[in-house]
Design a protein around this nucleic acid. Structure first.
Lengths: 184, 184
DNA sequence: TTCTATATATATCAATTTGATATATAGAAT
DNA sequence: ATTCTATATATCAAATTGATATATATAGAA
């Protein structure tokens, strides 16, 4: 065991809560999970087939019409596998921010360009923050309906907290660069 | 042009400041840049050869003894390529936190396990934060020696700001889960 | 002096993952 | 009728990681 592909664990995690199609899994990746994890079709579909081969998930035909549709559910073995992974310590917590990379090399592009990058970053965060706040609001209202909700809320609070810190940093960083710019 | 591999841009960015060997580049990735970007030997060495082939960097023998050693420097064409990338908007700013992933599926593992994950995360951040604070201190002292230093400082300030937000979140998250746990 | 551990240094490769694309049906709106 | 968007599966080249192999240099301990 031990060596567990992350994609397997994410899929089992999602399936532990509800039965899903590959398409629905991708949608969850792009909404609820996108702030801290990602996965593409190119990894989801092969991994789904793989889970079935290993008896960790089951595939059933979910078509109600002519359209192709396969619904996946977790097996007992799958739930065991998931629990094993859940109890192991987290291995990778990493940030990959191209904005910071460009800023790090900022001297090559100059102050105005650096400020433009910070501005663009700030706008992106300002645009996304309301969705997190809305999710927080919704989750607080339904917190008692499902035990899983409090865990979802935890990740949303993380997002809100860090996004607000980002916005503070944006202002301070621009102030610092602006000051430097005037002196020249 | 347009389609630029990130690894090429990082290498040129580092080489724009000083001549480096592949090994030294990897060291910088694992220290100064590790908080917001990463790269492995498996991408660095092939990319370095590729840059030379395209005339964006130059390779020279830097051995002072029997040991293999090749020093790379940026060319004028390379500097042009770098500037083009720097002026384009940042494409990907993403977080990949396994801690949050495990927390999101926390209902499957229970409150105590979730708290343990938050604790481990908190300890990791508490351990790394002093290095960032030290880097901030050092950079502030040498800020006038090199124009590049203020940009390095900016990324360090980002790290400090977000790490402190993480620590606040850790406390709040544990309080929330602890409260929930007692009620049961 | 020799041994040992660590640092310097390049290089490669299987396995994983992304990003893009192809294909086709369903449903809603114009 | 037609067009747009959403649902749904699937594949593949290209990028990247993580691990490993190889070899020399250096500093300190035995």
């Amino acid at each position: 065991m031990a060596i567990e592909k992350k994609i397997d664990c994410v899929l089992l995690g999602l399936l532990s809560h509800e039965d899903l199609t590959g398409y629905e899994i991708k949608k969850r990746m792009d909404t609820s999970l996108k702030y801290f994890w990602g996965a593409s079709y190119g990894s989801i579909y092969p991994a789904l087939g793989n889970l079935v081969d290993r008896g960790l998930a089951e595939k059933r035909d979910g078509a109600e019409n002519k359209r192709n549709k396969f619904v996946y559910s977790i097996t007992e073995a799958g739930r065991g596998y998931l629990k094993e992974w859940l109890q192991a310590p987290a291995e990778r917590d990493e940030l990959r921010y191209e904005t910071l990379l460009k800023l790090f090399f900022g001297n090559e592009g100059g102050v105005q360009q650096a400020i433009a990058h910070i501005d663009a970053f700030q706008k992106k965060i300002e645009k996304e923050l309301p969705y997190l706040v809305k999710a927080e609001d919704t989750l607080k209202k339904v917190i008692d309906i499902d035990d899983a909700h409090q865990y979802y809320l935890l990740t949303v609070e993380f997002g809100i907290k860090t996004y607000r810190a980002y916005l503070e940093w944006c202002e301070e960083a621009k102030a610092m660069l602006g000051k430097e710019d005037k002196q020249k």
